[in-house]
Amino acid sequence: MTLPRGLYVAALVALAFLVLPVVGLVTRAHWSTLWSDLFAPASLTALWLSLWTAACATIVCLVLGLPLAVVIARSTTRLAGVLRTIVLIPLVLPPMVGGLALLSLLGRVGLLGKPIFQFSGFSLPYTSAAVVVAQAFVALPFLVITVEGTLRTSGIGHEQIASTLGAGRWRVLGTVTIPLIAPGIAAGTALCFARALGEFGATALFAGNAPGVTQTMPLAIYTAFNGVGITQDSAVALSLLLLVSAAVIVGGLRAWREDAVR
């Protein structure tokens, strides 16, 4: 079915809106120093930190988010509405407020953090684990909402048949429910990873900014940007590096899963 022509024009405007800023970024790069900026030890450290913390955060989101998504999808409409609203909290909170919230709970003098510190001498801020926590906090809604939506539309017919055939509840979940929504899970995971990778505000406030430990790429870019002269060029280089890495990983993830299931 062909669409009204005006729709294509509007879509083109939207695409331009997304693509042109990136084009602007590329033109700002200082090509002479780009290579050395890209592969300076500091930038590679920040990139590696970003990648592995985002990966861990995504795993945390899967472990926590999948059960929650299944529960919401199989709840009554009213309860589901309430739960969905709660899940949206990190989306609605500005990331810095999220960081502040995490500090007030898990900081050294926080609600839970204080007794934990007094008992074990361990506090979460300034550790890489804190980065994972901050990223997981902001990225969880993406996974839950995507998976829950897929579950709701797929309905319970297959699960009911499976249980009459003799499958217990865990077996139904593992052999019927989850495989049927695999594309939704893949989409949610990709979104979740991308969000975790790009997270700045909550990480800056909750985990701090120490190279190699908590200075993820976004923080490195911001710090470089706040510097004078050469460091601003390296901010552009870092931004490009992060953009390309994210695009490769997220694009790769989606393409692979979408082929596999059909």
Binding site: G157, H158, Q160, S163, T164, G166, A167, V176, P179
Partner: peptide
């Protein structure tokens, strides 16, 4: 008794085979 323990199976209008 839960459905999986009843040994009663159900066949509907739509085959509802597991697509995966």
């Amino acid at each position: 008794e839960r459905p999986e323990h009843r040994r009663i199976t159900l066949l509907e209008q739509k085959p509802r085979l597991f697509p995966h």
